[in-house]
Simulated assay, not measured.
Amino acid sequence: MEIQRHGIILNVEYFDECVAFYRDLFGLPILFSKTEGDFKLTCLEYGETYLMIETEGVANTSGKSIAENATKLRFNVADIESALRSVCDYGIDAHIESNPWGAVINIVDPDGNRVGIRD
């Protein structure tokens, strides 16, 4: 099997808000979008892979538990302090957590999916 490109599909309830979140906060370029009736998808470039956001998900805006969504998206950054400023400027109340393995900012997207930003 020859794999051409890897990807992640994230089904969401708040589609437009989630697309804006990943596009605007993280600067992920849109590769393409499609709509078929009530179904929508937008594919964003996510490093060497892609993040496809699709409708048909269920939100928990207070944040999904690991049982509700075992996946956590990770963004590695060169400057965690600058990343925190960007997150706060976007309107998200966040802070840096220090761990033996590094520093991380834990937030959720508009659907409540877990997102980590790591130094």
Rank of each mutant, 00 (worst) to 15 (best):
V58C: 06
D93I: 13
F75V: 09
V87K: 01
Y50I: 10
I105G: 03
S98V: 02
N60V: 15
V115R: 00
R5P: 00
S65D: 09
C43P: 03
N99E: 08
Y50T: 14
V19H: 02
R85P: 02
E54D: 03
R74Q: 14
I92H: 00
V115S: 01
G116D: 09
D24I: 08
G116N: 14
P100R: 11
E17N: 15
L41N: 05
I66H: 05
S98I: 04
T55L: 10
S65Y: 08
L73Y: 05
C43A: 06
S65C: 10
V104Q: 00
A20D: 06
N99T: 11
L84H: 04
T55C: 11
R85K: 14
N76R: 12
A67S: 03
I107A: 02
N69R: 06
M1Q: 04
V77G: 07
T42A: 10
N76A: 11
A59P: 07
Y50G: 03
I107G: 04
R118N: 14
D38E: 12
F32D: 11
M52F: 12
Y46G: 07
L73V: 03
L44D: 13
G63V: 05
R23E: 08
I53S: 02
E97K: 08
C43H: 08
V87R: 02
R118G: 12
S65T: 15
D119W: 10
A70S: 15
N60R: 15
E45K: 13
G116T: 14
R114I: 09
D111A: 05
Q4L: 11
Q4A: 09
D89C: 07
V104A: 02
K64L: 05
N99D: 04
V108I: 11
L44P: 14
N113I: 04
N11D: 07
I53V: 11
R114Q: 14
S62F: 14
F21R: 01
F15C: 00
A94L: 01
D79N: 13
